[in-house]
Design a protein around this nucleic acid. Structure first.
Lengths: 211, 211, 211, 211
DNA sequence: AATGAATGAGAGTTCATTCAT
DNA sequence: GATGAATGAACTCTCATTCAT
């Protein structure tokens, strides 16, 4: 899995790269808390700075606009997801590999569900350029699962058209994310493991044509 | 299907009920256009009034706050959905009935995808009370499909636990809505009919246990 | 004397034209006081609103930006100047007419010297477009005196090349304005009448070639 | 010509006098570029430091406040003017000497017109104390020409009252400076030599009373 | 002597809401 | 019932200045 587009640069007045990394992580953490609580528009930059632990002036040394904070947050999600998916042990058996990927993906979402929810609800507030970048990351996610599904078809385990490949991959991505943005409904009825089990079974059964 | 909660009342200074109905529909239509274009927070009440065709003063004769506009919009969605689902011809064959319900549901979403997307992204801006009301409507939707699925299990066509019943219903509702909020990705790959076909097949195949 | 360019429009949210006129005059008056005292940049829009007698919100109903206030001020100066010069009685004798025009011009400046000084020092803060508009008004002023001087040359009283015509007209305009922006030096040494007498004599003697 | 007031001291933490001189010249040069481009208020201290070639911290080793930069700039103008006027060869014939002084003065202005324009438009941003110092320098300039004119009256070439002496000197100073601050209008119509010729002739003709 | 990250008061602007007409 | 001018709290962002290194 490779990044398809250059990262959009968020301008800084600070020169020390390590410090930038560190402060931006503080900003992102603060933003997750606040955007979750009150949404992007109701959270103020002053609050973000305060929760991050520094002054409003300092915030703006690491970020040009409030929108940059949202972009940083969205970007960090995919960074995290990629790290996790890249690091899980690769199986030879491809259906198992697919299952494992789904599991890992759902786990990341579970562990970052606030961030995912924010991204879902607020990414529309990004500039066109940043939004395109983020949606593109999303498509990379879909493409990853398309690839894994395709591997299965090549082994003859599945028979899927290109369209079905896409729809199935899309299906996985959405259901995974729904674990985040529909917490309120789902958590009352099952655990993440049960959810993963149901989704994996339904999908694979649904896709496997045994006639 | 019955409405579980009393409709939340949006106060008015105007008496004429028909006029209220009429003006509110104008408000909702204007809001759909503007919230889609710029989101709830960036759209101003002045703009809403202007697009609706009257003055800001008049807007506030039919609505107490800006949030009321969002609430009215969300509420009208479920009103519309219910009307459509209630009116389609009921079959005796229950799997067919389920299929038909799915189809109708996806069709409503397709025809109101802007409104659905807005609801998805902006409902967090509602007050706790209004949000609960809306989420409750959402659960009624899920319950509707749970009921239809349950009918199938009772005929022995499906074997599903309570949990699976809920997850499957939830699955339908989410995939349907994804047709609205993931337009940008889905519309390039398939038509609404193809999407319905894929979702219906996958779900039913995935659920039917043939061992 | 005709206005060479369309007036630049300053946008408003208010519809009542008379009210706009009235409020803008209040804004200009407040701005003259404050810009004189602390300059354009140090005067705040809040102060302007306060001195004008209304709230900051109201200020922004009649003006889009702070720069608009400055533009309104500059524009009103030329409006005033034109009114005064257009209304003085026209002589037949052209040198007398020139003298009278100079006198009237210097009088207007004397009566609006704060506004003139502000324009001199702050017009650079206008947008390119607005600045061009204002400088153009300034050139119209020069052109007016060029015309009056030209009348004299046509009667054979003066012999001036095109360049000299321009320089002499320019000379009048600058010396007049210096009465405003060099108050601090000039007022200690002479009255406006003495200043006018000196400038008129020097200019006419300087220009008249008697060899 | 003697300096009438002690130079205002701009405090420093640095000891090395030569270095101070050197760095301040860098600061002034940077300030001329930036103040010309965006004015005193819009130019930031950071930018000044950057253009000057060092860090913001260093800037504040040589200057107490941003206003000091403006003061330094204004002060350097008179320093330059004095150097030039003091160094031109003194004639015995006093009208020629006056003419030569005018010429040299206009030449300095031409070569430093950015700095002069800045002084004209921004000196109001100086503190009262610094402003008085600068205006005083200005009056010294006027006094210089008063002196030269007086020499002529004493030789019987001119007959001028004290007031006329002042006004004529003032006239020269202003017209000279107008070559800087009215560049936009004048440069299209004549060269500096033509301008000097016109101003010198008009003034002398205007002043010489031969009846 | 030089650096540059940190600070926070303060500025311009917006916009939901009110209320007299 | 309809209008639209008035309001002011609240928000984002800037930038002169400081001080530890």
């Amino acid at each position: 899995m490779t990044e398809s587009k250059e990262k959009l640069q968020v301008e800084t007045t600070v020169k020390d790269a390590q410090l930038i990394e560190f402060r931006r992580q503080q900003i992102i953490n603060a933003a997750i808390v606040l955007f979750k609580e009150k949404g992007f528009h109701r959270a103020t930059t002053r609050e973000i700075a305060k929760v991050a632990g520094f002054s409003i002036g300092t915030l703006y040394e690491y970020v040009r606009t409030k929108e940059d904070v949202l972009y940083l947050l969205c970007d960090s999600i995919y960074h995290e997801v990629r790290q996790r998916l890249d690091s899980f042990p690769q199986h030879s058996g491809t259906v198992d590999e697919l299952k494992e990927a789904i599991k890992q993906y759902f786990f990341v979402i579970d562990s970052m569900s606030d961030a995912f929810t924010i991204m879902y609800q607020e990414s529309k507030s990004l500039s066109t350029e940043a939004l395109h970048y983020v949606l593109n990351k999303e498509l990379e996610m879909v493409a990853l699962f398309e690839k894994l599904l395709k591997n299965c078809t090549e082994l003859g385990i599945l028979k899927l058209s290109e369209q079905e490949l896409f729809l199935a991959a899309n299906h996985i991505v959405i259901q995974g994310q729904s674990w985040a943005f529909r917490r309120w409904a789902l958590h009352k009825h099952c655990t993440i493991d049960e959810f993963i089990a149901y989704q994996t079974n339904t999908l694979l059964n649904g896709i496997l044509r045994k006639e």
